[in-house]
Write a protein that binds this DNA or RNA. Structure first.
Lengths: 197, 197
DNA sequence: CAGCTGACAGGTTTCAATATCTGTCATTCG
DNA sequence: CGAATGACAGATATTGAAACCTGTCAGCTG
């Protein structure tokens, strides 16, 4: 679109790739399209990314990292652990649901990309679980939570709330009653974490 | 295969359809194949099922009902509610995992079928949730569980354990650590249900 | 000379012609 | 007479040839 004469950088290629994916979708987005959007030949793109798969992987990582970054603020916040946990889970759900609802096609695109890039997604999940672990460990430290193994509990909480952040459930997020379902699951999990006197 | 001269019944057609689906998979299984397997013309099949979709739906229902039936025995068993709940959840997970592991192609076939038949799946889930509700209500009655709304709690438990029964996670069920993950989630949920003195 | 280009080989996708399937129904069969 | 058949129209799937894409590299350009 804009064949700016700035030097070609990995960052600019990623930007252009996101745009091409947004326009054409994951099935029809080609490396040639990306090069054309940048006003260069596709050979130049291959100077920065060894393969098309590597390019798509990098775009996926960028996208996931943005979510992680937003949530880490909450994980570190200076609040009572239970409130922090509830807020973090609500923010994760809200972020995913907003993305799925606002631009379903783009969300579908990234769902395809995450399906292709198991290891990047795995790292993202590890990251989210470690944020959760910090929250739960804080709760154990204050005596609010009883968890023999904060990491295992974090994993359990993350998996138990999968219905509210895993893309495979995206189409159900706008159904009525979803809010209540989310609240019920979170209440049950928080109750399970609480220290019983 | 065996063009027996018994009268053509819906039951025999369903049997043959399951066999054809097992052989050819969901994409290539045709009504003509089913008729051929029964030694009749495909017009005869349409006397019993209005459309191909209705036939596939009936097969799906049969398959799901078999699972429900197995589990209902546990739901009604004469045991302490907590043990019954744990056993029921473990049985659900074990049944799904066994089916997915023993014959992955057949499982994939049924995953496609359940994807096509939202309402039948919805009824199946309602059925499972009502079995769970009965277990949890029993726990409330004995004073073991504290749940303001047994039905809502049942729904929460069912959704929170989705990772261990929803087909979209099937490929992760054989990974190491899955048993431990399952145990951690169930422990957390049971702890959340327990009455806190 | 570092970075970019564009032609190219091998592989994948598209498209239109062809074959098959779904669902109906007038007719046949027992 | 009720159950089953098979020819048929319209819809869907398959196939093979042509178009396009990926990844490489010898050579061009600033």
């Amino acid at each position: 679109m804009a064949p700016t004469s700035e030097t070609l950088t990995a960052e600019r290629i990623l930007e252009a790739t996101e745009e091409v994916l947004r326009r054409h979708g994951p099935a029809k987005a080609t490396v040639v399209d990306v090069a054309r959007a940048l006003g260069v030949s596709h050979g130049s793109v291959y100077r920065h990314f060894r393969t098309k798969a590597a390019l798509r992987e990098a775009v996926t990582k960028r996208w996931l990292d943005r979510t992680s970054g937003q949530l880490s603020g909450i994980a570190e916040a200076d609040r009572v652990p239970e409130a922090r946990l509830r807020e973090w889970l609500a923010a994760l759900f809200a972020a995913k649901r907003r993305k799925a609802g606002e631009d379903p096609e783009l969300f579908a695109t990234y769902t395809v990309l995450t399906g292709e890039n198991g290891s990047v997604v795995g790292e993202h999940i590890t990251d989210l679980e470690s944020q959760l672990t910090r929250i739960i460990q804080a709760g154990v430290d204050t005596g609010d939570f009883a968890a023999a193994d904060a990491e295992a509990s974090a994993r359990a909480v993350f998996q138990a709330t999968g219905r509210f952040h895993d893309p495979c459930y995206a189409k159900e997020w706008e159904e009525p009653g979803t809010e209540a379902d989310f609240a019920a699951v979170v209440d049950l999990l928080v109750q399970g974490l609480r220290r019983t006197p």
